[in-house]
Design a protein around this nucleic acid. Structure first.
Lengths: 148, 148
DNA sequence: CAAAAATTGTTTGTGTACGAATAATCCAGG
DNA sequence: CCTGGATTATTCGTACACAAACAATTTTTG
């Protein structure tokens, strides 16, 4: 914990963010149950549920995933039959993504409990602290100028 | 941004933590300069600087890295000559890690600017907000009972 | 003390992350 | 209209992240 100069690893934002994210991931896994689904896969399904149809890159932007990362996430979801891919007739570069019936049913079932994961992640804080924390964290999560 | 039920991805702790961590990583890369060093490699060097000598697993615990992850991080640092590995004469399972002269010099030079990365990460917040945020984040980063 | 339990480091396999390069396609300015 | 620039999706390479299984040890316990 001590350090030669004033530099203490345990006080650095990056280290703490990483640890908090680790803890959240563990909570996510516990709560998601027997369904084998990662946080990113979950996020992609949620956004797809909100929008019905989006191109792969666009979905990546909305879920903060790199195009290369998105590719892998989508490939795995598609191979499990949770989402469907079809070419965009208006733009042949694009791939239009949508939920399959199975994917729709799965994400609907999971979302009802989704808030519980955030609640459990923030459980060490009081209600007031939770609100403060989420507000501040939201500011720090903004990359640059974000819109939609 | 909208959702069918009340579930909004952008308000979930996990999603925000992930985004904030992404933003921090980008800031880290910009500030670390031409030295090719990742946040985890940096953390390992910092801790090694504080303690002089530690076993690999112990260092992993102090930096919140999985044993398998630590293995890779250490291997890369050792192959670059930044750290040294030697067997523990008292426990033949253990590998004792320490900084090489080069590693020592490198981390000393980087630590002087290390605080700047956290400052830049937290820059969107006021001074008071920064303190609040770090305090709350510290609580959320605690896995269970932690000591040492 | 000897068998059982725990630790240390390694390897394997899957899944993010993301820079960089590429092919196919779209689009805008001249 | 047509050519240079942007966009979309894919692939490659490197680096986490972590569960699971292992061999070599150490430690604990009956």
């Amino acid at each position: 914990m001590a350090a030669k100069d004033g530099y203490i690893l345990e006080r650095q934002a990056g280290h703490l963010l990483r640890r908090a994210h680790q803890r959240h991931s563990a909570i996510f896994q516990e709560n998601i149950g027997d369904v084998q689904l990662t946080p990113l896969q979950f996020a992609a399904l949620v956004k797809l549920r909100d929008l019905n149809e989006v191109s792969q890159n666009h979905l990546g932007r909305l879920t903060a995933m790199d195009a290369a990362t998105m590719q892998g996430v989508i490939k795995r979801l598609a191979s499990r039959g949770l989402i469907e891919r079809r070419p965009d007739p208006n733009d042949r570069r694009r791939l239009i993504l949508s939920l399959s019936d199975e994917g729709q049913a799965l994400i609907n079932a999971l979302v009802s409990n989704g808030g519980g994961i955030t609640a459990q992640t923030l459980a060490p804080l009081s209600a007031a602290e939770q609100k403060t924390f989420l507000d501040l964290l939201t500011k720090l999560a903004q990359l640059n100028g974000e819109a939609e």
